[in-house]
């Protein structure tokens, strides 16, 4: 068995929802069945094999090739298996993911990991705005699992996040952890303005605070937090700086906020 490879014949001009081409949805289908599935490209309805050249036979291991930046909802809702994108991916990567692994060897579009409950998404490049965040109308963003970002994250990282962990090796944009309900976001680089805007609960782990902070995020002093050593130990070996943290270095400066909306969110700045 070899991975089922979906190689784009040509990059489509319009966004294409390929959420149905995930290991769970494809389980039990023959190559011919898969080839005959249909997708919408703009106004056109096309067969999967019109859009992709298919090869391989293991639908539990799906590989997308070519310029996939217009492909949306890659790996959405899958329960197990593996999806790999050899290059950039479009929006909503891993939406509602229930298990398995998604690897994007490039950058991902907006709302990466929105609503994911379990499983793991690794993006080696950047994620656009609203990674791990709720789509309009959804009451929660990411609700479990692990999102690893090798590059930078855009604005509103983890907006309305409910559970799970997001680790960003690079920088994060403005309003990081806005309206966060629970879960953990760690950013190795810089974060933009106003982290924790309307944050209710949850944890941001940062190396430094930005210049623009909210008055409702309040300094609660320096603490040595034992749970961090367990957390850091659980990250050991992950790609990026968080996989190599000294588990004993768990002294942080602790800020709480946003005070107007319960104020139980915490921003932990490493090094105390």
């Amino acid at each position: 068995m070899s991975a089922l490879v979906l190689a784009l014949r040509n990059a489509p001009a319009q966004r294409v929802d390929v959420g149905s081409l995930n290991p769970t949805a494809l389980a039990g289908l023959s190559l011919a069945d898969i080839a005959a599935l249909t997708l919408s490209v703009g106004k056109r309805t096309v067969r999967v094999d019109d859009l992709f050249e298919l090869s391989g036979d293991d639908s539990s291991d799906v590989v997308f090739r070519g310029d996939c930046s217009k492909l949306e909802r890659i790996g959405a809702g899958m329960k197990s298996g593996r999806v790999t994108v050899d290059g950039d991916a479009g929006a909503y990567v891993g939406q509602g993911l229930l298990g398995g692994d998604i690897v994007v060897k490039g950058s991902a579009g907006a709302f990466c990991g929105t609503g994911m409950k379990r499983g793991r998404i690794e993006v080696t490049g950047d994620v656009a705005d609203f990674a791990g965040a709720a789509i309009p109308g959804d009451m929660k963003g990411m609700a479990g699992g692990l999102l690893l970002v090798g590059g930078n994250a855009g604005e509103r990282l983890g907006d309305r996040m409910r559970r799970g962990q997001i680790l960003v090796s690079g920088n994060a944009g403005d309003y990081c952890g806005a309206r966060m309900i629970a879960g953990t976001i760690a950013v190795a680089g810089k974060v933009g303005a106003y982290p924790g805007y309307l944050m209710k609960r949850g944890t941001l782990i940062l190396n430094a605070l930005p210049a623009q902070m909210l008055p409702g995020v309040v300094d609660c002093g320096s603490h040595r937090l034992g749970f961090l050593s367990l957390l850091y130990a659980s990250w050991k070996g992950l790609p990026g700086p968080f996989g190599a943290l000294d588990a004993s270095a768990c002294t942080v400066r602790r800020y709480m906020g946003d005070m107007g909306v319960s104020g139980r969110g915490e921003l932990l700045v490493r090094g105390g």
């Binding site: 106003y194 902070m213 909210l214 008055p215 107007g260 909306v261 104020g263």
Partner: peptide
Amino acid sequence: RMPEALSTLNALLAKQPVSEAAP
């Protein structure tokens, strides 16, 4: 910088502290 103003108002409405003497 409107988020700072609204964060201040909401904190004070909730009878909670703010981080600055003069937001």
